[in-house]
Design a protein around this nucleic acid. Sequence first.
DNA 1: ATTAGCACTCTCGATCGGAGAGTGCTAAGA
DNA 2: TCTTAGCACTCTCCGATCGAGAGTGCTAAT
Lengths: 348, 348
Amino acid sequence: MKRNMTDLTSRQKIILSLIVHEHTRTAQPVASKTLIEDYGLQISSATVRNEMNTLTELGLIRQPHTSAGRVPTEEGYRFFVSNLVQQTALPIATRNTITHQFYQSRRGLDHWLPLAASVLANQSQAVSLVTAPHSEKIAFKHIELISTRGSQVLMVLVLVGGEIRQQILALDEVYSQESLSRMANQFNQDLENKSVRQIEALEASADPLTQQILAAILDQMHLTEELVTGELFLDGLSNVLSTPEFAATNQDHSPLRLLEERPMLNDLFSRTVLTEDIGGVQVLIGGEGTWQDLRDCAVILTRYGIQDQLSGMLGILGPMRMPYGHAISAVHFVADLLSDLITDTLID
Amino acid sequence: MKRNMTDLTSRQKIILSLIVHEHTRTAQPVASKTLIEDYGLQISSATVRNEMNTLTELGLIRQPHTSAGRVPTEEGYRFFVSNLVQQTALPIATRNTITHQFYQSRRGLDHWLPLAASVLANQSQAVSLVTAPHSEKIAFKHIELISTRGSQVLMVLVLVGGEIRQQILALDEVYSQESLSRMANQFNQDLENKSVRQIEALEASADPLTQQILAAILDQMHLTEELVTGELFLDGLSNVLSTPEFAATNQDHSPLRLLEERPMLNDLFSRTVLTEDIGGVQVLIGGEGTWQDLRDCAVILTRYGIQDQLSGMLGILGPMRMPYGHAISAVHFVADLLSDLITDTLID
DNA sequence: ATTAGCACTCTCGATCGGAGAGTGCTAAGA
DNA sequence: TCTTAGCACTCTCCGATCGAGAGTGCTAAT
């Protein structure tokens, strides 16, 4: 079933590449004549047709109907991406512009993540997805208790890795800001770098007030732990709204549904990228049998961040007919950029 | 131009209402016969046709072509919303379920805002928009300096109202967590409740380290001040993807573009709702001449929060053909719910 | 003021046919 | 054995045509 490099002659590879390229450009079936005319091949259209026949038998391309040109199949795209695609690095000027946007007045993740999504969307002309980085292991870093009104207190919790969580606590009596700060300092000394387990062990043998706060801390840590990924940033919806692949022709089965269904999205993330080391880019073509809604789409995903410590995911979702070389390069580039930024500002 | 209540006989109002209702249901032009058959009117179709003629002359309904039924015009919808719509309160069971979801294990805005978006989207079967609440006047509440690595420090800034901002600072030398905490405490005493102006006044006469931190604080306060609204939460995209109004038939002019263009969105927010007091719901029909992309859409927006202190915006964007009664009630309901929650947990 | 009756108009869907595109096959040439 | 010119064949696409049906506007009667 699975083809490898050696199954195809180099001429067949060239023809497959050209079909992919041309079909990406025009969204139309590609004719044998178009190929020799537009790309100046030194062979006749009949020869191309013969080769096309072979490729069709191999399941790499197909004809929408008897007398139409050829279109790459899912298999065909997979073969292309695995063996033939060549990454087309972003122009140096573009890279500089983008890098500059990220580094100007170092504003932190709040700024970088939407920017990453925006850059990806622009570069790929597809929908981009970026998740906030998430710690591999949840541990306490710092707590702050801020008196607000009456006995109500704002708890700000910083976890190792830099994730910040907040919660309003209703304490039993009113405490001054001084005593709240003292309490927070105590927690900061006692809990630094401690894991959920270790903190749970302390919970039992504490006075009621401490217990209440510990419970809140643990609550937030649990919530964070349960997340597969951090917050999700999207961009580039308008890039794909008008493409036929995303139009909701089939009743309400649009690939865009996926973006609103966190369970599905998490599933996608878990099954593909979470298993990979940082640095590898995964390309999913046509839903891979699992995601019906992605039948005509491709997803390019990768992980960024710091191996075994703090990582997020980013990638794009576009029509299967996509400029893979450019898209993969763009994903790589943005991932590396974010990884660098996070390494520079890691909170540990 | 503008019609008021008294321009129409009560029978005309009934007919207009029925046309709006029926067209909302079927998305088809409404015939005179349909009206008397499906709604049991005790008049003949010819009479209805005569009245329809009048309504057409008044510009409240129109015929797509000579021998088709009638469709409400923009004007017609406006008249309907201003004079005829009756809010249909959400069923008590639904209200309870929703309220319960908001109040369970009070998790704070992180939880409430996406939930609000989700509830609105479900109730209205349209796209929902919710912005995080934003302070009317920016003032310092609390700062925390957390040592991370080497001379790098995480600054967590809490503003009056509860907005939290963070930034990584690169200090000139390494400070212990104790000395950082001491510094933070000093700031907390000196700056409590101070505005941007007041803090700027202090900046000049401080030592370099203090200056650096004050600059960072001011930087974040300025950034916050410049925001028209807080973070934006969306939901319900899939509700409208398949409706003709949102399909990107006209090249790439879909109403959904709007959602990705913050400037446009801010403009929409500013011109309509920011001018209103909390409690009033605004209905925008057909882009009101300003927003081309919203030609076939309606937007229902309102403000929630605490007057003159902390407020955000929420609403829905749907096809002009929309169950206004239900939608307006839903927007009202969710806004009130959020206002209550925010009042309970206000940080001042 | 209302309504029955009727002629009129316009859309929608089905059907048809021709033009054009592109193929597969065959047979000849390198 | 590989390549290619030539040609018949197939299928889509597009426009034209047509009839059915829906819904109206008008007229005349109540």
